[in-house]
Design a protein around this nucleic acid. Structure first.
Lengths: 208, 208, 208, 208
DNA sequence: TATGAATGAGTGTTCATTCAT
DNA sequence: GATGAATGAACACTCATTCAT
């Protein structure tokens, strides 16, 4: 049996196990928060022994990092694929909104973690290991900015600061989604999308 | 010396001490996060001995609660006062935005805590004691909603769902402010306000 | 005003205050146990400020000592007075029993502390300061022994080891009294006395 | 290797460890009292790290409970076995006394704890978890009562209240044993037994 | 490789005692 | 003398991490 195959099989198994742990951690973090979830909890949730988890993640912080990275990567991939397949500038912009709504509707457990992370949370957690995630975030942000810039250049929307617009577009969804997830809003996800699109394009001005 | 004066002096001193601890906690929580800040840290930061803090706050959780309450109350009072003094519906709406920006610009340390709290963070922390804070939040939210509704009724802005608009208006500021605080944005607070107002009123549509 | 009067007034006041604290401590120790009663509790129960108690008792342990001493002295005085007033040897022995029953019936709260102390409990508490109490205990014990010895010499009871008999007589009451205090026994105190006297004098043997 | 064996080996090891901790606790509680013994002390006395003890006992209180239960169960088993093997009613009664003396002579360290527990001690400690121990105590007490009742029915001893007699018989030993353990009594255990038996059967009356 | 028992540093909290007023 | 706010040592308990099997 060739060595490469053996190795890659091993690697594939390793990767599978990593994913098991990450999924378990995602469930527990979302349910109980980072600090109220113990490594033992995660290991057992993933159906492994306490010590095993340390074969795949050197520390709890690193596991957390890996979890964020995985989900954010997944999110970005999902979003970009959708936008690329959308036809026309306006449609792409609409997709920037609807794809985010759709993704987090499906991963609402993760949304809690995501928000905490995007905004604040435990700073010290973030200090050391976040370079890679920051990079991912910026790449995504610049993808959104670019999409918007192109729409401006094409005359599909009027010209404003594209960076600020990207930030706004990304962020305006959070509070609505947050309310929706807490089930205080009875609207459908589709209505959320329409509300945002309407407001974004038409603004509040009366005389129109 | 009359008894009432003596008593109220004691109470005033007590209150001052409470505020000392809360301010110390605010600094440390914002810097290191809730879980990485120890009661001893807080007590020492406030220039007191370890045990003293427990004369003013029964548990760490309750101190955290008290801190949130204090700042949120302060925020709400600030905001509502500003809005009430604003002349005209449009001006009131502008004030909803500028007052928030101004408040958090001045209390940026707290903004981290605020965001974590508003969005997610440790669920278990929040479960028990938050009724009062939820009430504060809702009262504020309905104040915003009312302000917007009145503007609609008066024909100052066009009619949309006032609850969703209130949520949006409140939330749209966060990501911009967040970026600004992280000092990634070189704009002035004033420019942020203008950007939001422009976008909010005029929308993205070209033909205008 | 002569100095001695002033002084003795002071001293009388001091003593009164000491007794206040001891009475408060007695109530609380009996109710909650030594370790679950704080010095502050005692001071407040006695209607004084936290620090005041330390003007009268240097440490918590010493207060505990003083409490035991006071009550035991009271007990011994009560007992000996009763026995001295009893006529005849048998009546004196009966009084050794009835007086103990009577005293602890009236001071049942203290009985808990007494038992704990007489038997064991926190050894370390006892190590240093107990000489005086030990002396009191032995003086009492030898009073009982003497009473019994005299009865033997007079032929009122048969001759056995008077020390062991004294120990037995003193101790045999405790478990019955204990059950009685826990209200598991429905008998009257008088029945307890009769039971003990009967058993003590007549023994268990059938042929009598 | 069969699974059952593996499992029971693990369980046996667990049980051994539990016993290690209980024995360490027994030594330290008897020496220093409950409140002056720390969990760390116990763990170290048992040659384990601080945290390990919590794998076997959830709280300090529960460890204390377990200790009492173990020793009392041991005591009761010892006593009942002895009594059952004794021939004749009088011999059984003698055994009720001698077995207790013998047991506590061998476990004098525990005697302190036993006495404190039987009589009073920290009430609050006892309030919650003691149902099981109370049950054990009552079962034992009714065993003694039954033994005595049978002896009465058979005419081996005269008729008195069997419950009070059981209480007395159980309790009368304590003060003598207590003195003996404190080494104030120079008698042998055997002499203690004879003294009690003699007093119990023949009483104090002269005319015999 | 997988395990889980063992570890011990770390933290929230209590309380006897002190001392400035 | 009386006070009670302040103190900090002490302790029960947790949990990320290690390591012998």
């Amino acid at each position: 049996m060739p060595d490469t195959v053996t190795l890659s099989r091993k690697q594939r198994d390793q990767e599978l196990r990593r994913q098991d742990f990450l999924s378990a951690a995602e469930r527990l973090f979302a349910r109980n928060g980072y600090h109220h979830t113990t490594m033992e909890d995660i290991a057992h949730e993933a159906q492994y022994g306490t010590g095993t988890i340390y074969l795949y993640f050197k520390t709890k912080d690193l596991l957390y990092e890996a979890l964020l990275e995985r989900k954010i990567a997944e999110y970005i991939a999902f979003m970009q694929k959708r936008v690329r397949h959308a036809d026309g500038h306006l449609e792409k912009i609409r997709t920037l909104i609807s794809a985010k709504l759709e993704f987090f509707e499906r991963h609402r457990e993760f949304f809690r973690i995501y928000l905490a992370e995007m905004t604040t949370a435990d700073t010290s957690l973030r200090r050391c290991v976040n370079k890679r995630r920051e990079k991912m975030y910026y790449e995504h942000q610049s993808f959104v900015t670019q999409t918007l810039s192109e729409a401006m250049r094409a005359g599909a929307i009027r010209k404003v600061d594209p960076n600020m617009l990207a930030t706004t577009l990304t962020g305006v969804i959070n509070p609505l989604l947050s309310e929706w997830i807490k089930e205080r809003s009875k609207k459908s996800i589709c209505e959320l999308e329409q509300f945002i699109m309407d407001l974004l394009f038409n603004g509040l001005e009366k005389t129109k």
